[in-house]
Design a protein around this nucleic acid. Structure first.
Lengths: 218, 218
DNA sequence: TTTAATTTTTAGTCTTGTCTAAACTTATGG
DNA sequence: CCATAAGTTTAGACAAGACTAAAAATTAAA
């Protein structure tokens, strides 16, 4: 069994690993978790001993298969809870992260299984990030920025890049949310603005908006 | 802000206070929390310092107004989560306690406010215990054992006294659950068995069953 | 009311996870 | 290629919350 602190380290290292491609540096972990590098050294040594990551002095760490499994499981829980908070409890997209940080550590496999079913086995969280399955597999996502779509392409809104309240409210008043189908009706090369179809209505949006909306084009 | 351990102490003391009427003994707390009395002494001194309980050496502890408020708030969260687990995630009545023990410590007032609304402001948890409101007020309950009802009296099932799997399954197969209206059709003085009306059907039950079902006769 | 049993507290220790300060590696630049 | 900077680790300390063993207070019994 892993403690709350251990789970947070594994999660942080998992995220950092995807960006660095090589071993994750002690400093990077410290920055991510808002701790001192010396604390990180202690913890990675402990986690290495527990076989969930491999660590060499001065060379950084990377997760073992076992470590990845634990990390993705925590991420799975986090994202499922985020879906719950937004879909069922009607939180805004940007209000849920802190609460999910706590909920992700609740220990009960059965709980997550049932929550997943209750939410109808969602594939993405409210930020458009994919939800790993029980085995830690993450479906390769076709997530793109709306600005990358071509004329006449369509997709489903799966999340936002920036999540300020103003932006989310902008989207809300225009009936754009998770699961909304968006079609690019026209694209203006000059200023990168575009006309999109949302439900019955057409909408003209600036490049700034288009650069902050994630679309799944599967 | 209070730690998980502190919240658990306050909750335990709150429950014990209702039974003892005088100060709660150090030993009683230790038994309830499965710790050593010496650990309890340390903690109650700390909590006394924080003004959430008053404590006198060798005389036991009792909660201050502030302490009661925190305790009832934790209990409120616990019971709301239990309702969620049973009503929404379809857990059995007896499977939810451990999970709710964890969920009750999630910190977010907004979360509980929304969860309460999502569950339609329930008054009782799946065990028939009343859910305190935001201010810690607990509605005086008319909860009785089914065995205490008279012929022709009716009420709503609000919980169980014993919660073994067998008993819960017995109830399930007979369509008795939280919220089920039960009417006493006939009562046999000789062996305390009774005939009850559940929905369309009548049912003959033994005294053992009647002694383990809580009914709200409001 | 004096002794014995019980309960409670104190003192000292341990583990987890953190910190600071100092020492040590590795990387960088002249 | 050596000196310095940057990053990392070690050593020692601390707070929270628990434990054991021993001392002290209270209660019960003779």
């Amino acid at each position: 069994m892993f403690t709350l602190a251990e789970e947070n380290y594994l999660k942080a290292i998992y995220h950092l690993e995807k960006e660095s491609k090589s071993g994750v540096s002690t400093n990077a972990i410290a920055v991510k978790l808002n701790t001192q590098p010396s604390s990180v050294t202690d913890m990675v040594q402990k986690l290495a001993h527990k076989k969930v990551l491999s660590y060499q002095k001065y060379k950084g760490s990377f997760l073992t298969k076992e470590g990845k499994k634990i990390a993705t499981n925590v991420i799975r829980k986090h994202r499922l809870w985020e879906v719950f908070l937004v879909e069922k409890l009607k939180f805004q997209w940007d209000e849920v992260h802190e609460i999910a940080e706590q909920l992700e550590h609740i220990k009960s496999e059965e709980l997550i299984k049932r929550l997943d079913a209750f939410l109808d086995h969602p594939d993405f969280d409210p930020h458009g990030d994919p939800i790993p399955d029980e085995n830690g597999n993450i479906k390769p996502t076709e997530k793109k920025l709306l600005s990358e779509l071509q004329k006449d392409q369509r997709g489903i809104c799966v999340g936002v890049k920036e999540s300020s309240s103003q932006f989310l409210q902008y989207l809300d008043t225009r009936n754009i949310g998770i699961g909304t189908t968006i079609k690019v009706v026209d694209k203006e090369e000059f200023d990168d603005s575009m006309t999109i179809q949302v439900g019955e209505t057409q909408l003209h949006i600036t490049d700034k908006i288009a650069h902050n909306l994630y679309i799944n084009t599967n």
